[in-house]
Simulated scan of single mutants.
Amino acid sequence: MTETTRAQDPAVREEILSYYARGEEDARLRQGGAGRLEFWRTQDVLRRILPAAPARVLDVGGGSGVHAEWLARDGYEVELVDPVPLHVEQAAQLPGVTARSGDARSLPVADADHDAVLLLGPLYHLPERAERVRALVEAHRAVRPGGPVVAATINRFAGLHDLLHQELYFDPAQRARTDEEGDHGRHGPEGGLFTTAYFAQPTEVPGEFTDAGLVPEGQYGLEGVAWLMGGLDAWLDDPDRREAVLAATRRIESEPTLIGTSGHVLTVGRRRS
Rank of each mutant, 00 (worst) to 15 (best):
T178V: 08
T178Q: 06
T178D: 02
D179E: 15
E180G: 12
E181S: 02
E181I: 15
E181C: 15
E181F: 11
E181D: 02
G182M: 06
G182P: 07
G182F: 09
D183A: 15
G185I: 11
G185Q: 12
R186L: 14
R186V: 14
R186D: 10
H187G: 13
H187C: 12
H187D: 05
H187R: 14
G188Y: 11
P189H: 02
E190D: 14
E190S: 13
E190P: 08
E190Q: 15
G191H: 04
G191I: 10
G192W: 14
L193T: 07
T195L: 06
T196C: 10
A197T: 12
F199P: 01
F199L: 13
Q201L: 15
P202W: 08
E204F: 04
E204T: 15
P206S: 08
G207C: 12
E208H: 08
L214T: 06
L214A: 03
P216Y: 04
P216T: 07
E217N: 09
E217T: 10
G218F: 01
G221E: 03
E223S: 07
V225R: 05
A226M: 03
A226D: 09
W227M: 07
L228K: 04
L228G: 06
M229H: 07
G230V: 07
L232I: 02
L232G: 03
L232N: 02
D233K: 12
D233N: 13
L236V: 05
D237K: 11
D238K: 00
D238F: 02
D240P: 00
R241K: 07
E243T: 10
E243P: 00
A244S: 04
A244G: 10
A244E: 14
V245Y: 10
L246I: 04
L246V: 07
L246M: 11
L246G: 01
A247G: 08
A247E: 14
T249C: 09
R250C: 01
R250P: 01
E253D: 13
E253K: 10
S254P: 05
E255V: 08
T257W: 02
L258M: 12
L258Q: 09
G260N: 11
G260L: 03
G260W: 02
S262L: 00
H264L: 01
H264G: 03
V265G: 00
L266M: 03
L266H: 00
L266Y: 01
T267H: 08
